[in-house]
């Protein structure tokens, strides 16, 4: 990076591409170099990069560096930078577009696997539908038979006409199923009539983190269709 850069020779195609992809061009040209983004960004300094530097590199057309730095996978797109930025420069969207520019098979394997699992099996951990249903029913049966006062606890799956739909982070049923129970108990006490779904039940969406627009949308659309078919009017996110 110490060499003098010749900017004329660079096509800056990434800059042009993101400008048309982000509403209002992402305010890229508005950056005043104040550094507010850097001071509140926990990813500042990782991989020799920080948000302000990244913006400058995009503006200067340093496409090769911008599109190869692993920093885009170390930024969590938490949006603290754009929240603090006086000019609302959309750095998280820049990072997203840079991630999307990586060939899919070169993006981090773990995120890719979580995305693929979700598309194929309804949750990022990739357990088959039958296992998901079994775990819920097994844990429920255990609570009903061993915990006095909870004989009528419910954890319905695909219950038509339930007003509330609940998604489930896919970690619990796989690694710590008992952790699902406190939430069921709370819903019971609140008198909320709810249901899980047997398909596309996962509460996460790693396709978004993978910057895989098509599969991100596919998961959302399929889940929305399921919620509509069940007749639920409210979608409860476990957070």
């Amino acid at each position: 990076m110490a060499d003098v850069l010749s900017l004329e020779e660079r096509a800056a195609s990434f800059r042009e591409r993101v400008k048309s992809a982000i509403p209002g061009g992402g305010n890229l040209d508005m950056c005043m170099l104040c550094g507010t983004c850097v001071s509140g960004c926990p990813a500042s300094g990782l991989a020799g990069m920080d948000p302000r530097k990244f913006v400058r590199m995009v503006i200067l057309g340093l496409d090769e560096e911008v599109l190869s730095t692993p920093w885009v996978w170390m930024c969590t797109q938490c949006q603290r930078c754009i929240y603090a930025c006086p000019m609302e420069v959309d750095i998280p969207k820049l990072v997203y577009e840079a991630r999307a520019s990586w060939p899919r098979d070169q993006r981090p394997k773990g995120i890719r696997a979580s995305c693929d699992h979700h598309v194929q099996r309804g949750g990022a951990m990739g357990i088959p539908k039958e296992d998901w249903i079994f775990v819920v029913q097994d844990v429920l049966a255990d609570v009903r038979s061993t915990q006095p006062g909870w004989e009528n606890l419910e954890a319905p799956i695909d219950k038509k006409g339930a007003p509330y739909y609940l998604n489930q982070n896919s970690r619990e049923p796989v690694t710590e199923p008992e952790e699902m129970v406190p939430l069921w108990k709370i819903l019971h006490l609140c008198g909320i009539d709810w249901t899980y779904s047997s398909e596309m039940w996962g509460g996460e969406n790693y396709c978004m983190f993978l910057a895989d627009d098509d599969n991100w949308a596919r998961i959302i659309a399929q889940q929305a269709r399921i919620v509509d078919e069940l007749g639920c009017h409210t979608f409860i996110e476990t957070e």
């Binding site: 926990p42 969590t76 797109q77 938490c78 983190f209 993978l210």
Partner: peptide
Amino acid sequence: YCCGGGGGFLQNP
């Protein structure tokens, strides 16, 4: 501040 668990960070190398 973000804790660092988001954005797929937990799933990458």
